[in-house]
Protein backbone atom coordinates (compact mmCIF):
# COMPACT_ATOMS: atom_id res chain seq x y z
CA UNK A 1 0.00 0.00 0.00
CA UNK A 2 1.32 3.38 -0.93
CA UNK A 3 1.98 5.74 1.93
CA UNK A 4 1.31 9.44 1.80
CA UNK A 5 4.35 11.49 0.83
CA UNK A 6 5.74 8.82 -1.48
CA UNK A 7 5.85 9.46 -5.23
CA UNK A 8 2.86 8.39 -7.27
CA UNK A 9 3.35 4.84 -8.52
CA UNK A 10 2.77 4.18 -12.22
CA UNK A 11 1.11 1.04 -13.54
CA UNK A 12 4.34 -0.72 -14.48
CA UNK A 13 5.90 -0.02 -11.09
CA UNK A 14 2.79 -1.36 -9.35
CA UNK A 15 3.02 -4.55 -11.39
CA UNK A 16 6.71 -4.94 -10.59
CA UNK A 17 6.02 -4.46 -6.89
CA UNK A 18 3.25 -7.08 -7.06
CA UNK A 19 5.69 -9.53 -8.64
CA UNK A 20 8.44 -8.73 -6.16
CA UNK A 21 6.28 -8.77 -3.06
CA UNK A 22 3.79 -11.52 -3.91
CA UNK A 23 5.17 -13.34 -6.94
CA UNK A 24 1.91 -12.37 -8.66
CA UNK A 25 1.61 -14.30 -11.90
CA UNK A 26 -1.22 -12.07 -13.10
CA UNK A 27 1.00 -9.00 -12.64
CA UNK A 28 3.77 -10.72 -14.61
CA UNK A 29 1.39 -11.47 -17.49
CA UNK A 30 0.31 -7.82 -17.61
CA UNK A 31 3.86 -6.49 -17.37
CA UNK A 32 5.00 -8.90 -20.09
CA UNK A 33 2.25 -7.63 -22.41
CA UNK A 34 3.19 -4.02 -21.72
CA UNK A 35 6.95 -4.32 -21.99
CA UNK A 36 8.11 -7.37 -23.95
CA UNK A 37 6.98 -6.17 -27.42
CA UNK A 38 8.81 -2.87 -26.86
CA UNK A 39 11.99 -4.65 -25.79
CA UNK A 40 11.87 -7.03 -28.74
CA UNK A 41 11.37 -4.22 -31.24
CA UNK A 42 14.21 -2.22 -29.67
CA UNK A 43 16.57 -5.20 -30.02
CA UNK A 44 15.49 -5.87 -33.60
CA UNK A 45 16.22 -2.24 -34.38
CA UNK A 46 19.82 -2.77 -33.33
CA UNK A 47 20.32 -5.44 -35.95
CA UNK A 48 19.47 -8.57 -33.95
CA UNK A 49 17.48 -11.24 -35.75
CA UNK A 50 13.84 -11.80 -34.84
CA UNK A 51 14.76 -15.04 -33.07
CA UNK A 52 17.65 -13.53 -31.15
CA UNK A 53 15.54 -10.54 -30.16
CA UNK A 54 12.79 -12.87 -28.96
CA UNK A 55 15.29 -14.92 -26.94
CA UNK A 56 17.01 -11.93 -25.32
CA UNK A 57 13.61 -10.43 -24.47
CA UNK A 58 12.48 -13.72 -22.90
CA UNK A 59 15.73 -13.84 -20.89
CA UNK A 60 15.35 -10.25 -19.77
CA UNK A 61 11.75 -10.77 -18.70
CA UNK A 62 12.80 -13.88 -16.78
CA UNK A 63 15.39 -11.71 -14.99
CA UNK A 64 12.65 -9.22 -14.23
CA UNK A 65 10.67 -12.00 -12.57
CA UNK A 66 13.65 -13.22 -10.56
CA UNK A 67 14.92 -9.81 -9.48
CA UNK A 68 11.62 -8.02 -8.98
CA UNK A 69 12.04 -8.02 -5.21
CA UNK A 70 15.07 -5.75 -5.69
CA UNK A 71 13.03 -3.11 -7.50
CA UNK A 72 12.66 0.09 -5.48
CA UNK A 73 10.33 2.71 -6.99
CA UNK A 74 12.06 5.38 -4.91
CA UNK A 75 15.31 4.75 -6.77
CA UNK A 76 14.11 4.41 -10.36
CA UNK A 77 11.04 4.05 -12.53
CA UNK A 78 10.03 0.58 -13.68
CA UNK A 79 11.04 1.46 -17.23
CA UNK A 80 14.53 2.59 -16.20
CA UNK A 81 15.01 -0.49 -14.04
CA UNK A 82 13.88 -2.87 -16.77
CA UNK A 83 15.97 -1.02 -19.34
CA UNK A 84 19.07 -1.59 -17.20
CA UNK A 85 18.28 -5.31 -17.04
CA UNK A 86 17.87 -5.45 -20.82
CA UNK A 87 21.13 -3.65 -21.54
CA UNK A 88 23.01 -5.94 -19.15
CA UNK A 89 21.59 -8.93 -21.03
CA UNK A 90 22.66 -7.21 -24.24
CA UNK A 91 26.20 -6.74 -22.90
CA UNK A 92 26.31 -10.42 -21.88
CA UNK A 93 25.13 -11.55 -25.30
CA UNK A 94 27.59 -9.28 -27.14
CA UNK A 95 30.43 -10.57 -24.98
CA UNK A 96 29.77 -14.01 -26.44
CA UNK A 97 29.27 -12.99 -30.04
CA UNK A 98 31.37 -11.25 -32.62
CA UNK A 99 30.81 -7.59 -33.37
CA UNK A 100 31.44 -8.28 -37.05
CA UNK A 101 27.78 -8.69 -37.87
CA UNK A 102 26.77 -5.54 -36.08
CA UNK A 103 27.37 -3.51 -39.21
CA UNK A 104 24.26 -5.09 -40.61
CA UNK A 105 21.82 -2.66 -39.08
CA UNK A 106 18.17 -2.32 -39.81
CA UNK A 107 18.27 1.39 -39.14
CA UNK A 108 20.05 4.06 -41.08
CA UNK A 109 20.07 7.41 -39.36
CA UNK A 110 18.24 10.26 -41.04
CA UNK A 111 16.55 12.00 -38.19
CA UNK A 112 15.53 11.27 -34.65
CA UNK A 113 12.04 10.43 -35.85
CA UNK A 114 13.01 7.57 -38.15
CA UNK A 115 12.70 4.80 -35.66
CA UNK A 116 9.36 5.93 -34.25
CA UNK A 117 7.60 6.68 -37.50
CA UNK A 118 5.70 3.44 -38.09
CA UNK A 119 2.26 2.63 -36.80
CA UNK A 120 1.00 -0.37 -34.91
CA UNK A 121 1.93 0.99 -31.53
CA UNK A 122 -0.42 1.21 -28.62
CA UNK A 123 1.71 3.48 -26.42
CA UNK A 124 1.30 6.69 -28.36
CA UNK A 125 2.11 8.92 -25.40
CA UNK A 126 5.62 7.54 -24.95
CA UNK A 127 6.26 7.86 -28.68
CA UNK A 128 4.95 11.39 -28.81
CA UNK A 129 7.08 12.37 -25.84
CA UNK A 130 10.24 10.95 -27.37
CA UNK A 131 9.47 12.58 -30.71
CA UNK A 132 8.97 15.93 -29.00
CA UNK A 133 12.20 15.56 -27.04
CA UNK A 134 14.28 14.69 -30.09
CA UNK A 135 12.77 17.51 -32.12
CA UNK A 136 13.91 19.95 -29.47
CA UNK A 137 17.52 18.97 -30.06
CA UNK A 138 19.66 20.24 -32.93
CA UNK A 139 20.30 17.48 -35.46
CA UNK A 140 23.99 17.40 -34.63
CA UNK A 141 23.09 16.36 -31.06
CA UNK A 142 20.15 14.03 -31.73
CA UNK A 143 22.08 12.21 -34.45
CA UNK A 144 24.85 10.71 -32.25
CA UNK A 145 22.35 9.95 -29.49
CA UNK A 146 20.14 7.97 -31.86
CA UNK A 147 23.22 6.26 -33.29
CA UNK A 148 24.24 5.28 -29.74
CA UNK A 149 20.95 4.18 -28.23
CA UNK A 150 19.07 2.94 -31.28
CA UNK A 151 21.81 1.62 -33.52
CA UNK A 152 24.24 0.61 -30.76
CA UNK A 153 27.22 2.33 -32.40
CA UNK A 154 30.43 3.06 -30.48
CA UNK A 155 32.04 6.53 -30.38
CA UNK A 156 34.58 5.38 -32.95
CA UNK A 157 31.93 4.00 -35.28
CA UNK A 158 29.96 7.25 -35.03
CA UNK A 159 33.11 9.32 -35.61
CA UNK A 160 33.93 7.30 -38.72
CA UNK A 161 30.35 7.49 -39.98
CA UNK A 162 29.92 11.25 -39.72
CA UNK A 163 33.57 12.16 -40.26
CA UNK A 164 34.26 14.01 -37.02
CA UNK A 165 36.99 13.61 -34.37
CA UNK A 166 36.22 11.38 -31.40
CA UNK A 167 36.35 14.31 -28.99
CA UNK A 168 33.69 16.17 -30.97
CA UNK A 169 31.45 13.10 -31.05
CA UNK A 170 31.76 12.69 -27.28
CA UNK A 171 30.97 16.39 -26.74
CA UNK A 172 27.87 16.20 -28.92
CA UNK A 173 26.65 13.08 -27.13
CA UNK A 174 27.26 14.72 -23.76
CA UNK A 175 25.53 17.98 -24.71
CA UNK A 176 22.56 16.25 -26.34
CA UNK A 177 22.25 13.92 -23.40
CA UNK A 178 22.27 16.79 -20.91
CA UNK A 179 19.57 18.64 -22.82
CA UNK A 180 17.41 15.53 -23.10
CA UNK A 181 17.85 14.94 -19.41
CA UNK A 182 16.82 18.47 -18.52
CA UNK A 183 13.72 18.13 -20.69
CA UNK A 184 12.78 14.74 -19.22
CA UNK A 185 13.02 16.17 -15.71
Amino acid sequence: MQQSGEPEIDQESSLLLAIGNNQSQQAYVELFELMAPKIKSFLMGRGSSVDESENVTQDAMLSVWRKADLFDPNKASARTWVYAIVRNRLIDVQRKTSRVDRGNKKYRYQSGNDFISNGGVNDASAQAQLQRLLQELPDEQSQPLVMSYVQGMSHKEIANKIGLPLGTVKSRIRMGFQRLQEMVN
Binding site: Y83, G120, Y149
Partner: peptide
Amino acid sequence: KADEIGAQFMFGGEEAPM
Protein backbone atom coordinates in the same frame (compact mmCIF):
# COMPACT_ATOMS: atom_id res chain seq x y z
CA LYS B 1 20.63 9.05 -15.89
CA ALA B 2 21.84 7.41 -19.09
CA ASP B 3 19.55 4.44 -18.39
CA GLU B 4 16.63 6.83 -17.91
CA ILE B 5 17.19 8.20 -21.39
CA GLY B 6 17.71 4.68 -22.73
CA ALA B 7 14.32 3.75 -21.31
CA GLN B 8 12.80 6.68 -23.18
CA PHE B 9 14.23 5.29 -26.41
CA MET B 10 13.19 1.70 -25.76
CA PHE B 11 9.67 2.36 -24.51
CA GLY B 12 9.13 5.24 -26.93
CA GLY B 13 9.86 3.00 -29.90
CA GLU B 14 7.81 0.53 -31.87
CA GLU B 15 6.40 -2.80 -30.77
CA ALA B 16 7.13 -6.25 -32.17
CA PRO B 17 4.72 -9.05 -31.20
CA MET B 18 6.21 -11.80 -29.06
